[in-house]
Write a protein that binds this DNA or RNA. Structure first.
Lengths: 336, 336
DNA sequence: CTGAAAGCGCTTACAG
DNA sequence: CTGAAAGCGCTTACAG
């Protein structure tokens, strides 16, 4: 006889199977301590009742929720999307769930989201992109759970990170332009608040220019917010403020495409009259006309690794510097 | 004197403030029943101890988690991203968290994710994109929580949805092409598994052709998977199988951009020799060269509304048909 | 206005 | 191999 209950609990299963809740819990968790026969009875009862474990109760007592909190500066661009995808895939394989939080690049909001994640007893958090304000770092510390920073790092707090060597990558991108015969090069950087796209990449750019004996004046770099629109506007400024520009390095593919779009509306042909190299190697680079030459970051893989670091204690506390490469497509011209 | 505890609970706060846990709970939840003075003492104790509520315990007893589960067929494209953004923003304003699940357009995986969401006691779920298989619909039903479908619907289960009238939108897009003087028009549809991009939009397309007295042969529609790459391939097929094509309607902006890219590598000028109209009005349309004329869906807003329907019981069970419009940019030519 | 107590649905020693 | 019981950190009637 089946006693159907609205929302069966482990107690209902126990009753149905004629065992104690402890035993049900054991088979539920794959722990040892029961005969094949009891196991079968329990499984049958579970099936018959349509029992579903309540993760809140489980989490409350086991002190593990299998939840990974992800803080993204924005979720609208392809970089975030690819990263999130990597995280989600790995989390799924590792039987974890991901809670996404949009920080809007705002530290107050970040702090708030961290508190929420803390209340929800997240097992770990992945913080991507923007600079980590001190109070957020402190909150992270007090939460006492695994953290990994993606494409950013903290000087104040020693937190594991996953990223590319942005300075080197920017250096290589710029040198690639130099090697292709360009002498007057500009850069469209990310927001100053972003340590990677707005900071270290600029350093790498400047270093490469200096090393090549080229003009590395401050005018040559202008900042955008990583978006297409801002790339377009930045290109406009750059053209006005630097003479004889023949190549531009943009700190994101979207801004690079924006720069190309500017050229399109101003009768400047890419790559014949203007070369453009981007950063990230997102789908945007592939979809660009002409296809965009860019610095590849293994973003999806970085997401996977970040999630793995959170879940797998063997990797806890490790930082990872991932390889970058230059993907040549058709937006950079080789000068004679 | 401050008694600092590792992870203070409501009991610690109660002790510190010299009240009962019931009282602490009341001020925590803004319920009435205490003097200004006790409230102050409680707040002070909370502050002093650095108390943080445990959402698992709260959820366990209150039977509300403020968690919205979101099931996306993929999280890599801009459509999903914009939708997720709308959902996240609204959820944040409504003090909810969102758990994202990638279904990979796979019903088995969807079923699994739904079960996880059920175990986690999600307050509601938003299911976007692909067809809802019967067992998934049944699972949704048995979960007994608010559901909203985005850009899809279920015939078997009467579930509230938020979408655009895809048939009408596709009809208008096609008629727009006809009105611009095109007679030989093709379509790049979405996957057949997607009722909107692979189903109703095709119907709208065909209807418009028939109504205009144009050839509406089955050869004129080919399917892609909504991606850039598939758009490119689809365009290749279309060019091979239909004569004198001058215009194409793609069921996603990404595929439309793929079609444009195909033209780029085959010396077919857009819009002079080939007109292309997309669907969605994502960032891809704006970034395209030439800028893509497309059917606008208020995707971000649809995400917001879906979240609101879940949270706000006044809107529960309501379905929403959102307005679409045609955004004219530069990828469609007006034939003389 | 305030508190003692039961209970949400599980897991985990502990005993047998 | 199995069960009774305590307990995770809260909320919610119920009494006073």
């Amino acid at each position: 006889m089946v006693n159907t209950v609205a929302n069966p609990t482990i107690r209902d299963v126990a009753k149905q199977a004629n065992v104690s809740v402890a035993t049900v819990s054991r088979v539920l968790n794959g722990l040892p301590g029961y005969t094949e026969d009891t196991k079968r009875r329990v499984l049958e009862a579970i099936d018959r009742l349509g029992f579903r474990r309540n993760a809140l109760a489980t989490g409350l007592v086991s002190r593990r929720t299998s939840i990974i909190g992800v803080l993204l500066p924005r979720i609208s661009d392809r970089w975030s999307t690819m990263l999130l995808q990597g995280i989600e895939h790995a989390a799924h394989e590792l039987s974890h769930s991901v809670i996404v939080c949009n920080t809007d690049d705002d530290a107050d909001r970040t702090l708030h989201e961290l508190q929420v994640l803390g209340e929800r007893q997240a097992d770990g958090v992945i913080y991507a992109g923007s600079h980590l304000r001190d109070d957020c770092g402190k909150e992270l510390e007090r939460m006492g759970i695994p953290v990994v920073l993606v494409s950013t790092s903290s000087t104040r707090y020693q937190l594991p990170y996953v990223r590319v060597d942005d300075t080197a990558a920017a250096f290589h991108a710029t040198r690639y332009l130099v090697e292709n015969g360009h002498h007057s090069i500009g850069m469209i950087a990310g927001p100053s608040a972003d340590p990677a796209s707005g900071g270290t990449r600029v350093e790498g750019f400047l270093q490469a220019l200096r090393e090549a004996g080229l003009d590395a004046d401050g005018d040559r770099v202008t900042h955008g917010d990583l978006s297409f629109r801002s790339g377009l506007d930045a290109m406009d400024r750059l053209m006005a403020q630097v003479q004889g520009l023949t190549a531009v390095f943009a700190a994101s593919d979207e801004m690079a495409v924006g720069a190309i779009a500017w050229c399109g509306t101003h009768q400047v042909r890419v790559p014949e009259q203007m070369s453009v190299i981007g950063y990230n190697d997102t789908q945007d680079a592939e979809m660009s006309v002409p296809p965009l030459t860019t610095v590849r970051q293994p973003i999806y893989e970085m997401g996977r690794r970040a999630a793995t670091i959170i879940v797998d204690r063997r990797h806890r506390q490790e930082s990872l510097v991932m390889p970058f490469s230059i993907v040549e497509r058709s937006s950079v011209r080789r000068c004679a």
